[in-house]
Nucleic acid binder design. Structure first.
Lengths: 361, 361
DNA sequence: GCCAAAATTTGAACCGATCCAACGAAAGTG
DNA sequence: CACTTTCGTTGGATCGGTTCAAATTTTGGC
C-alpha cells in the first residue's frame, strides 16, 4: 500500500511540532508549560506549528508520569456507579466531598467495584492520588484493595471490628446512635418493636435473626443492631421476640418486610429503621395501609438525609454529620502523604420530628 | 546526613523488584500482566520480592502511557462539582450516564470548570478518553476547551445557535417543548402569564426583558423563551406585557421573583417555569402564600425530574428523555473514536399532572 | 571591541510501565 | 546425534511528556 494521505492518523506529539518548528522538544515543552521563558518569536513559531498540525496541547498522560500527581481523588464503592447519584446518603456525602475538592481544585474519579471481576482491576488501575472508600457493603475487601495501592486512603464508616490494621477511617458511633433511637422510643412508652435492617448477607432480603445479623458484611449494620438491642434489653424488653427483617435498602424489600411484620398477630407500635431510606419507604407503605404515623406506629430512621425533613410526616432520625465526614475525608487524603492516620468517630444526634410519638398502648 | 534507613522512601518500582528477584524487568512485568507465561518458580520469586519490598502492583501511571486508554470518561460542567449531586436534572442524567458506564466497565471523572482560572487547566489535564459536556451555562467556552483536547466528546444540550462547528451534541427541542407548555396553558383558558427564567447573564437575578434574554449564555434558555412567546403570540396574547423574571435556579431567586411578580396589580394565573427546580421552588412559595395550585395559579415546569412526580401538587411539566440522553452520550463517546457525529435532537413530552388546571378567570 | 552577566536553547535523563523481536535452553523428532 | 519446536527470558524501544545542567546566544558595561 502506498501511503495515501498519512494512513493511520497517529496523534500529533510534542516532538512532532518541535521538529516542525525547528526547536528542541525541551523548548517546545516550555512553550506550553512556561511560555514566559521562551522568546516571543520562537513561542509564536511553535504555537503556529501546533495550530497547523492540529496539536491539542501536551497530553496529560505524558505529563502525569513525570509529575506524579493526578490531582484527583478516587471515591470507591462496591455498589454500581449510579449509587452515588441515587442513594440519598451517598449524595449528601458526595456533595460535601465535592465541595471540599472544588475548594482545592482537585477532581473526583468515581470507581465502582460492583462485580468482583472488575472490582480489583478498577481499583488497581484507577488514576488517583488517593481513595475515599465507601464501606456500606463489602467494605473490607475494598479497603484491602485500596490499601494495596499504597496510596493515601480513608475509609468512610469502616467496619468497627476491623481495626487490626492501621487504616484511616472516619465513621460514627453506630452503637450509640442506635441506642439513642431505641431509647427515644422506649421513653415514649413503646414496648412492641420491629427492626428493618440493612443488608446483612449477600443480596437477599427476608426475616432474619440476631445471630444471623452478627455476621453482617458491614459492621455498621451489626453495630446498629447491637445498639438497638442493648437499649431494649436495658428496659427489659424481650429482645428475642423483636422481629428483624433484612432489607436491601430499597422499596421492594422494605414493603415485603412490612407485609411480613404486620401479618403477625402482635404488630409493633415502633419501628427501628437502619437507614432513612428504609424509613421513608416504610412511611409510604404505612400510609398506603392506613396506618397512621405516629398515631398507630412510630418510626425512627438513621442517617439524617435531607429528604427526611420534608417527608410526610417528617422523619425522626439519628443524624450523622455527613457533610463533616466528607470534609474530613478529603482533608485526610490531600494533607496526608500516605501514612494512615487514626480512626475518627464522630458524634451522632437524635433529631425528633413528627414520625415518632407516644405509644398508643 | 548519613542514610538512616533509606531516607526519602521513594516508591518501589517494577524495576526495583525485578532487580531484587534477579530477573529482567520484562519478566517482572509479565508476572503481573500475564502471569501464565512465566514459569511458576520465577513467578513466586518475583511475587515474594514484591511482597517483601512493599510493592503495590504496577503503577497505572506507567501503564497508561503505553496503553493509551484511560478507561474513564470525563463529565464536565461550568458549575461546581457539587452540582452533579445537588441538581435534580444533573442527578438523573448522571445516574443514566453512570449506568451506561457501569455496563462497559468505564469509570467516570467529574471535572468542574467553575472558576475560569482552573477551567482551562482542569479540562486540559483531565485523564479521560472523552468528554461529556454539560452545557447548562457557559457552554460554548467549555465545548471549545473540550474540543481542543481532540478527544471524542459530546455536548449535552448545546447551544442551538452554535452549530457552525461540527460538534456532536445531544439535546432536546427546547422551542417545541416550551411551545407545548404554553399551549397546554392557553388551552386551559389562561391569558395572564409570567415566566420564571433560567439564568441569562452572569450570576444575577431580577426582572428582565425578552431583548435581554436573547443574549442568554445558554441557548436552551433562549429557545425556551422563544417557544413560550411564539405560542402565546399565536393566540394573540400581548407578549410585551408578560413579565419575565430571571432566576438563578435556586430557592432564593425564585421566591424573589414571585414576590416581584405577585406585587403587581395584574397577577398571573399561569406560570411558565423554565426548569422543574424553579417550578418546585415556586410551588413552595405559592403554598406559603395561600395561593392554591391549580385553583388560583397553574404552573408548568420543564425537565421532568422525579421530584416533580411527588411534589404537592404533582407538577405538570415538559419531560426530557434524560436517561436516553445519558445513554446516547456514553455510547457516542465509547463507540466514537474522535470524529464528531451529527447532533441529535430528542423529542420532549408534555406530562400533565396536577399543577395545571383551567384558568380561574 | 572585549568580557562578564543575563537570557535562551539544547539534549539527555527520567517518569513507570508494556510490548516484542531475538535469543537460549529444554523438549521432541527422525 | 543433529534439527526442529516449544517455552521462558531478556533487553531495548516506546509511550509523551518535564526537567535541568550545560551550551549557546544576547545584552550590557566600559
Amino acid at each position: 500500500m502506498a501511503p495515501l494521505t498519512s494512513a493511520k492518523t497517529r496523534p500529533v506529539r510534542l516532538a512532532d511540532i518541535a521538529k516542525a518548528a525547528g526547536v528542541s522538544h525541551g523548548t517546545a515543552s516550555n512553550v506550553f508549560a512556561r511560555p514566559e521563558i521562551v522568546r516571543e518569536e520562537v513561542r509564536e513559531r511553535v504555537k503556529a506549528a501546533a495550530e497547523a498540525m492540529g496539536y491539542g496541547g501536551p497530553d496529560p498522560k505524558g505529563r502525569l508520569l513525570r509529575a506524579g500527581k493526578v490531582n484527583a481523588i478516587g471515591v470507591a464503592t462496591a455498589e454500581p456507579l449510579s449509587y452515588f447519584f441515587e442513594d440519598p446518603f451517598a449524595r449528601v456525602m458526595m456533595a460535601s466531598i465535592s465541595q471540599a475538592c472544588d475548594a482545592t481544585g482537585a477532581g473526583i474519579s468515581l470507581v465502582s467495584a460492583a462485580n468482583s471481576e472488575q472490582l480489583a482491576w478498577n481499583i488497581q488501575s484507577a488514576l488517583v492520588d488517593g481513595f475515599i472508600v465507601f464501606c456500606v457493603d463489602g467494605g473490607s475487601k475494598l479497603v484491602e484493595l485500596a490499601r494495596d495501592r499504597k496510596l493515601p486512603f480513608v475509609a468512610l464508616d469502616l467496619d468497627s471490628d476491623d481495626d487490626d490494621e492501621a487504616v484511616a477511617a472516619i465513621g460514627v458511633d453506630n452503637i450509640a446512635g442506635a441506642g439513642l433511637a431505641a431509647r427515644h422510643l422506649t421513653e415514649l412508652g413503646h414496648r412492641r418493636f420491629a427492626v428493618l435492617a440493612l443488608p446483612c448477607a449477600d443480596a437477599g432480603f427476608g426475616p432474619t435473626t440476631r445471630e444471623q445479623m452478627e455476621k453482617a458484611l458491614y459492621s455498621g449494620t451489626r453495630d446498629r443492631l447491637r445498639g438497638y438491642f442493648a437499649e431494649l434489653a436495658r428496659v427489659d424488653i424481650d429482645i428475642s421476640k423483636v422481629p428483624i427483617y433484612e432489607t436491601t435498602n430499597d422499596e421492594k424489600s422494605v414493603w415485603a418486610g412490612l407485609d411480613h411484620i404486620f401479618a403477625g398477630a402482635e404488630t409493633p407500635t415502633a419501628i427501628l429503621a437502619m437507614s432513612d431510606r428504609i424509613a421513608l419507604h416504610a412511611l409510604d407503605w404505612l400510609r398506603q395501609h392506613d396506618i397512621t404515623v405516629p398515631g398507630d406506629v412510630s418510626i425512627v430512621g438513621f442517617d439524617g438525609v435531607p429528604e427526611g425533613a420534608v417527608s410526610k410526616p417528617p422523619l425522626t432520625t439519628i443524624v450523622q454529620p455527613i457533610a463533616e465526614m466528607g470534609r474530613l475525608a478529603v482533608k485526610a487524603i490531600l494533607e496526608n502523604d500516605g501514612s494512615p492516620t487514626s480512626r475518627q468517630s464522630l458524634p451522632v444526634e437524635l433529631v425528633v420530628r413528627a414520625s415518632s410519638g407516644p405509644s398508643p398502648a
